[in-house]
Write a protein that binds this DNA or RNA. Structure first.
Lengths: 214, 214
DNA sequence: AGTTTTGTATTGAATAATCATTCAATATGG
DNA sequence: CCATATTGAATGATTATTCAATACAAAACT
């Protein structure tokens, strides 16, 4: 990670010298998208929220597109680091690690309506802006692979050998995405607790004898 | 349904007299959103694709917003009628009915990239346009309730009595939504067959002894 | 210390492009 | 000839982008 510099050079100039205005603008972008939707997010709104002039925002990021891209990258990095640290933790039983991942995926920090609405906004444009896809896809793959490995470690707990670790990992991932979407739809019903519980029961149905999934 | 007239009057004038241009425009709207994304969909594009003038499109639907709304309604109705007919079918064993629903949810007609990208486009704006939400939410509820009833009929097939029908129905629904999203992301991996299979294995993990889920 | 110079950071008004919406004019068919 | 359907050019609003002007701060010089 430190040895190999990431080649994001088109999106943010250099990691070592991100100005405070840079961050203020990215924050303001995310807040604006969450508050008004991507379609209604203008440079003027973002600049105002960040407390800088409109011209400045454009000058710093070269274009609105680039500002949006940088904001998505920021969000994506934030999510990554939250699960990365769980995967890297030592001396953790596989079951407990999965429980930690589940907690993280439905924590207030990650699964709140503002962040989800920003994710959705970008996701919905993925088919038309390959650059959006690039930012998410790579991390997604790493996450899926690590999850798959983790589930392999639980193989002995279930007799359903035809439900492969890859498939279990995919279905977990899909279910989480779907539940996030539903939090946006109907937050009264789909509280974080409710969603977490649904996934927990799903695990329970696979690993019937594991008490910690109850 | 027939006795009580639905109060959609703001969106499409009257069911009995939808002109062919009306439908052409709705089709063109869906195609345009699928091809260019909601953000890049202009009345001019839609009108051109529909083969009418720009002014006409606006005149007929009163506003762009209304055209979008009508298109979402159309899509929503289309989906509804496809699962509705499965629920209404007589002399169908619960398992077979679920299999039919699963087939439908990952059929080419329903789960293709164009339609999914239109759904996503609207979903992502749901937080900011209550009218979008209204169109989807009601049907969603009916679908969920019917699914829940269906799953209740399978209660005797599983020993996992703490995974309630409602929860199973919710998790199915979420998983489908999540998989649709992934079809958009990476259609090479997430083929309809692949997705259907994931959900099938999920059912298998709950109803272990039911051979038809294998 | 105070003044001038120089380079950078920031502004905000002007520009140009895009688009929804309007409506007077025209076509169409009964 | 009338009524209705349809056109497409004009309008006005919105908004990303540009850039000359200005603020600011740090050196450089007296």
């Amino acid at each position: 990670m430190i040895a190999a510099p990431e080649k994001n050079n088109e999106i943010i100039e250099a990691n070592d010298q991100i100005s405070s205005n840079h961050l203020k603008l990215i924050d303001a972008t995310i807040e604006t998208i969450a508050a008004r939707g991507l379609a209604d997010t203008t440079i003027a709104h973002v600049a105002k929220k960040a407390g800088v002039s409109q011209g400045y925002a454009n000058f710093k990021f070269k274009s609105k597109e680039n500002l949006l891209l940088s904001s998505l990258q920021y969000l994506s990095d934030e999510y990554k680091s939250s699960w990365q640290s769980i995967f890297e933790e030592k001396n953790l039983d596989p079951i407990d690690r999965i429980l930690r991942i589940l907690d993280n995926d439905f924590s207030e920090k990650i699964a709140n309506r503002n962040k989800i609405s920003v994710w959705m906004a970008f996701y919905s444009e993925v088919k038309f802006r390959p650059s959006y896809l690039n930012i998410c896809q790579h991390q997604d793959e790493i996450y899926s692979n690590q999850m798959e490995k983790l589930i392999k470690e639980l193989n002995h707990l279930t007799k359903q050998t035809n439900f492969t670790p890859k498939e279990i990992s995919e279905s977990y991932h899909s279910m989480v995405d779907g539940l996030w979407q539903r939090i946006l739809f109907d937050p009264k019903i789909y509280t974080n607790q409710f969603c977490r519980n649904i996934v927990l029961k799903y695990f329970k149905s696979i690993y019937v004898d594991e008490k910690r999934f109850s």
